[in-house]
Design a protein around this nucleic acid. Structure first.
Lengths: 220, 220
DNA sequence: GCATATTTGTCCGTATGTATA
DNA sequence: CTATACATACGGACAAATATG
């Protein structure tokens, strides 16, 4: 039943603006439109075959996801996160992900998803797939947040991780950044398997603080 | 300096859509448009003297704040929260507000804002001002979340509390709901003044769980 | 500093699709 | 089933702001 969720978008009728937003979101997250890129209404509208009004609605959607920034009378740009943005982003991640883990006293059912992400990361490393490595790592944190059992937390986390992707696209060597964290992912998973949520939360706390420092340092 | 923040909207150039969204947001939060109200493009557009395109952009903004829900080809409605929505909302509040308090070991500077909200609540009760009571209570929780020291957490909390307001507007007697929580606000403040963040977090945990149960029970 | 070209902000008219009485 | 009301989406228009030479 749950595996069908991803296909819902195909069934539920969506507006043109939402579909356009989906296409642009994909482009941004895969790095095709790197941070700072200006998205011009006319050229993109022409390329996608939609009117300016429709395109502007798509821009609004993505602006509210913080993937685009709208500057009045100047247009929309792919967001470039400042150092302060990154720090704030991680402060919230710490609260959310920590809050999802803390208080857990038995191996939670959602552990499987966490374990799957850990395995996925190892596999991506084995075949030297950097993009897969990044995705696996993000999925690991997504699975942690999902332990909160809140749809709202899931949505929030999706948005946060999309922004984290932006940070990665603005940095030089994502691969060497990610590799060291694979072992720490395993540690956290082990704590969870043992039903030690509070310990997992402490490990995660150090983890995210280290990652934040590294990113901020590498970021300018 | 800080008191001028509310006037920023007057200085910073904003788009028409944002100003329209601001007007509608105010109407919704003060209860003028109660949950379930349908907002018709033509009549509102005519009343405010803006075009449909502009109005639609304003609707998009408010939909993403979850104050409106957009049903394809049917229009926009002031959101009515389901029981599941309320529970999910409180699950996230618990994580956010708890995360802001946990780990505090010295009386934080932001305590003043918390104390101000507590005083404001007592004053509103004294003059039998129900609307003031609700506002003071929400401001109390806003001040708690602000202890996280994150702009992003503040914004998130603003959105969450706006939704909580919607719940209150859908319920019969907000006054008698709020009064008992004034004493518990004071307890939490006392713990914070003493620099006992973890204890404050535990008090808050019970507090929010009780409030959630009460609201869900009163809510259908 | 100025003039021009480009782009955005806003509005309108209209054709089409969809939901509901 | 029809009629009505409304939302979706398009294309065109023009003023205002911005970028460019």
């Amino acid at each position: 039943m749950e595996g069908l969720a991803a296909d819902r978008a195909l069934l539920v009728r969506t507006s043109t603006a939402e579909r356009v937003a989906g296409i642009l979101r994909g482009r941004i997250l895969e790095g095709y439109f790197p941070p700072g890129t200006r998205l011009v209404e006319d050229s993109i509208g022409a390329a996608l075959g939609v009117s300016r009004n429709t395109l502007r609605e798509a821009f609004r959607l993505l602006s509210h996801e913080r993937l685009l920034v709208h500057e009045l009378n100047r247009g929309v740009f792919v967001r470039t996160l400042t150092t302060a943005d990154v720090e704030d982003l991680f402060r919230l991640r710490l609260i959310i992900e920590g809050g999802a883990l803390r208080g857990i006293r038995r191996r939670p059912a959602g552990c499987d998803r966490v374990a799957a992400a850990v395995a996925e990361g190892a596999a991506a490393l084995a075949r030297d797939d950097t993009a897969g490595l990044v995705t696996a790592n993000l999925r690991f944190h997504q699975a942690l947040a999902a332990l909160a059992g809140s749809r709202r937390v899931d949505e929030l986390m999706d948005g946060l991780l999309a922004e984290v992707r932006l940070v990665f696209h603005a940095m030089a060597d994502p691969r060497s950044f990610h590799v060291p964290y694979l072992a720490r992912n395993r540690e956290i998973l082990a704590a969870l398997e043992a039903g030690a949520g509070d310990e997992a939360a402490m490990l995660l706390d150090r983890y995210l603080n280290d990652a934040r420092s590294e990113l901020v340092a590498a970021h300018l």
